[in-house]
Design a protein around this nucleic acid. Structure first.
Lengths: 378, 378
DNA sequence: CAACGACGTGGGAGCGCTCCCATCAGGGGG
DNA sequence: CCCCCTGATGGGAGCGCTCCCACGTCGTTG
């Protein structure tokens, strides 16, 4: 199958193309004689490298070198070119650069649509913010790709093949997702947000989810809680397993005996949190604290607690993860483990851009610390 | 001044470029002899139009026509080309297309960073979702640009000049923003989300903010509320003025006398909402309902009401705007006016792509309806 | 039955860059 | 005093595509 879009764009094209300025004036005449540049009223019809070269009295190669910051240009020449560039308002044509240099100065950020709904909403916005900031500094473009179906996912692979991006950032990858490996096979640098398993072969940036669980439990233990339950995320995601692992580690370190009855699986949704909480209350009515693996689930849990007549924090203490706006707005405000989301985004971008040698042998990983934000819920 | 990026990228470049597959094998040999294509192990080194043409036994032009869905190709030839495309796994090189066709198949979505923080957080994600969905259908790429400073804004204008995008979507534009006009001057199609004033000269998609205010007030009046106050957004934004206008219209229609003491200015933040609410309570202690121009401000107002000992909804009824997750999580859940955010995004994209003739003369506008979502807060 | 559109088709001419080789000055060593 | 090396520079050769003109081939007309 050929890609769908291109095949169907055809006919209407001509009508849509931005008309060249010259066409309007010289209509009928082919506009490719000598000096299209200096001719009549400036504006529009962007100057080319060649024109800059002519104006500066140098060759194309030299202008290119200046534009690209090559050191092998005399200071004097550089200045002359810079002036010409300024005078003409020259901006290099990106398409031409990409074609000639096989490099696009663009990076794709891929977000599975389904996740975007589940996750504490601001998560991706924060991530985007971090990525965007770092890319902007490096003068790279951010191509955002929301993937909402298998079909779109395949189309995305087409884009990769079409060499539209220099690298890919992958958010929220599930344990069985082959995409990261596929991208690497295409020879395109990748960095993921989070990982698929403990031993992730693809470069990634993650937050210390184990530490998050541990910190939450330690805090609850410190407040004298004895029967600490947890609402987990979907256990096919490493992030959920890690937080659960942290919870268990925290309990062990505090000398609490493990009790699987205190563990209920959620799915990162409010409803999931509510359901899990109900089941926990049924199984272990005596629980006095809950670590929810996300703020949204904590909100659901909170609702379930309220409907069961339990007070927060008097009867049951509650801790979430994400430190999202929801946490602040809850009543009482929710204690939560903050992840440095924006910083993760920045780090991902930096890894992608900077660590040039991102090859299969050395897999850069980075795990950023989390931080407990204490509020009224415990 | 020459653009910063290009001028400073120089030296490091070579190291970062993706190595061509051949280099690894034939290292030392120039890799540009005749048939790079059919040579050794397939994979990588994407096939070109020319190779597809050869394989299908037709000319380049014909393949191009097939790829672009031109009707002037015989069914038989089309099939032959399609087969060759499939066999070779051909994907057109985007850079080449852009260069030759001066058309990029990419659209920029510009979001002022400052706003991204203020607005009910999910707003932009929803917007992005809509835009993304529609663009994906048209096989266009979404270039997300968060603009966080004057400098970045200028850099963005450079990108426009570099012809990186076929069109621009602008979110959350303030009343005095010259950017939309600037972009039009560059001859690039633009569609804004929201408008800068009642008579907006640039194409836009907005939601019915006046209707939103009116609906909220009508609902409160219907519930028997007599002294209905409002917390507005920043009045330099049309959206805030429109909602205020709707509030006034609603009161007038219900035969209530206007009372400026019942109007307090917020700024779309929680703190702003809280402060405004406090001032309202001070000025008009007898108020029995509040229309907050955003859910986040409603949350702030709710806090202020609680600290003043007023119950919601018994003493004071509360209505917000956005129908964000916050609304659902509040206690009691907040009645709110929903805007079709995702639909706005879709509409914007459609306008940009479809309405080819977006010229100064005909300014397409679209105002989408809002909808009151009744919950416990009134 | 010749002339003439219409339809398919091939392929030249760029699009505006980057690469890289050839070239040209100078300057120091043999 | 000549040669070779280094640093700067010019410009040819593409990158892979779209446009568009020119060229058959038929099926129709007068």
């Amino acid at each position: 199958m050929a890609p769908r879009g291109p095949l169907s764009t055809g006919t209407a094209r001509t009508a849509c193309r931005r008309a060249r300025p010259t066409e309007a004036l010289v209509s009928g005449t082919r506009s490719d004689e000598g000096s299209t540049a200096t001719v009549n009223g400036r504006q529009n019809s962007r100057p080319t490298l060649e024109q800059v070269a002519a104006r500066a009295g140098v060759g194309r190669g030299t202008v290119s070198r200046v534009i690209n910051g090559s050191p092998r240009v005399s200071e004097q020449t550089r200045a002359a070119v810079a002036r010409a560039v300024a005078e003409l308002g020259y901006v290099p044509n990106q398409a031409a650069r990409a074609l000639a240099g096989s490099r696009t100065d663009a990076v794709a950020l891929v977000i599975p649509e389904a996740e975007a709904r589940l996750f504490a909403e601001p998560y991706f916005l924060d991530l985007i913010r971090g990525v965007s900031a770092e890319l902007a500094e490096a003068d790279k473009q951010l191509l955002l790709t929301l993937v909402r179906s298998e079909q779109e996912r395949q189309r995305f692979e087409q884009y990769l093949a079409a060499q539209r991006v220099d690298g890919v950032l992958l958010a929220s990858v599930h344990g069985d997702d082959p995409l990261p490996d596929r991208i690497r096979e295409l020879g395109i640098p990748v960095v993921m947000n989070g990982r698929r398993s403990e031993a992730e072969p693809v470069p990634y940036v993650d937050s210390d989810n184990i530490g998050a669980g541990r910190a939450a439990v330690a805090h609850l233990v410190g407040r004298g809680r004895q029967r600490i339950a947890t609402v987990t995320g979907p256990l096919d995601m490493y992030v959920a397993r890690a937080r659960l692992g942290g919870y268990r580690a925290g309990l062990a370190e505090a000398g609490h005996a493990p009790d699987e009855g205190l563990v209920a699986a959620g799915d990162f949704t409010e409803d999931g949190g509510r359901a899990a909480m109900r089941s926990l209350l049924e199984r272990r009515p005596g629980l006095d604290a809950v670590f929810a693996a996300s703020d949204v689930m904590a909100a659901g849990a909170r609702a379930a607690l309220r409907e069961a007549g339990r007070r927060v924090p008097e009867d049951v203490a509650l801790v979430g993860v994400d430190d999202s706006p929801v946490a602040r707005l809850m009543d009482p405000p929710l204690t939560s483990v903050r992840q440095p989301i924006e910083e993760m985004g920045r780090t991902m971008a930096r890894m992608l851009l900077g660590d040039a040698g991102v090859t299969p042998e050395d897999t850069p990983k980075r795990v950023l610390p989390t931080e407990l934000v204490v509020r009224g819920s415990c």
